[in-house]
Design a protein around this nucleic acid. Structure first.
Length: 274
DNA sequence: GGCTTTGTTTTATA
DNA sequence: GTATAAAACAAAGC
């Protein structure tokens, strides 16, 4: 499940491998993944253009293309962006192929076809899914505790649901939300307006910590996620509650519980998270 | 063949 | 308009 650390890891890899490459051709095998504009326009507009820069915003990958357009890719659940030699055969989930210089391809693989690609004018993100409406970047320098506290104004909903809301804060998904709430010692069933200042401070620090460590270990690989070189991450070995149902809590030894909050599988320690 | 998975969008409700 | 909760949707693996 590519969340902020996984997307960041992929972007770091892509920066090293495909920046300054020319897109010689685009092969679209699944037109349904091209969300905007129509697939034919998408292909023609990218052909012959240079990839100038790549960055991340939330879980979105943003390519700066030479004529001022932005290619935007969201991996959703099972999307992969891989750099492969162009003579290597495609697998059955390779749906979009960007043919690059040096006999290399940038390939979009997607088992469940939930991922989406957009090509928009520079900075015009309205056509690119939820990109225009994202909340703050949790790892940005300017994202201070004061800013974090301000996000809670007039918010009363369940804290887990709120952290998953990309318009509240960008980049957290199910894995890092569960891990951050555990690290902060906050029960995922709590409401946002029940958190006192000290708990918000703990949560603020926990979010930054788990995301940074997630990046340090190259992301979390359960089933599908790999980086741009096809390598798995290692943060799955460091998880304390996510997918640890029935395991012992690393802090207190009691049993990790799995429940369902906001329609999502939610893992926590009933002893440590009050 | 129904259930599960998650990120996001849509719809309904207060 | 605003906030929230729930449902819907994408599609394949088991």
């Amino acid at each position: 499940m590519p969340e902020l650390p996984e997307v960041e890891t992929i972007v770091i890899g892509l920066k090293n491998m495909v920046v300054n490459n020319i897109i010689k051709d685009v092969i679209i095998k699944e037109t349904g993944l091209i969300a905007f504009p129509d697939p034919d326009t998408f292909k023609k507009a990218l052909k012959g253009k240079k990839i100038r820069a790549i960055k991340r915003r939330g879980k979105y990958i943003i390519f700066n293309i030479s004529d001022q357009k932005n290619l935007i890719i969201h991996l959703r659940m099972t999307g992969r962006l891989l750099v492969k030699p162009s003579n290597l055969e495609y697998n059955k989930h390779t749906h979009i192929i960007f043919k690059l210089d040096d006999a290399m391809d940038l390939r979009f693989n997607n088992v469940r076809k939930f991922g989406r690609l957009y090509l928009v004018e520079k900075g015009e993100y309205k056509e690119a899914g939820g990109l225009a409406d994202l909340g703050p970047e949790p790892l940005a320098q300017k994202f201070t505790f004061k800013k974090f506290k301000e996000l809670f104004i007039n918010r009363s909903k369940n804290i887990k649901a709120l952290l998953l809301d990309q318009t509240f804060l960008a980049g957290l998904g199910n894995i890092y939300t569960d891990e951050a709430l555990f690290s902060a010692g906050i029960n995922p069933m709590r409401t946002a307006d029940s958190l006192n200042n000290n708990e918000k401070k703990k949560l603020y620090k926990a979010i930054k910590k788990v995301l940074k460590i997630g990046i340090k270990y190259g992301g979390t690989s359960f089933s599908d996620y790999v980086n741009a070189s096809g390598e798995k991450g290692e943060f799955q070995d460091k998880l304390k509650v996510y997918q640890k149902e029935g395991h012992r809590c690393p802090e207190c030894g009691s049993e990790i519980v799995k429940t369902r909050i906001a329609g999502r599988g939610t893992h926590y320690c009933p002893q440590c998270q009050k």
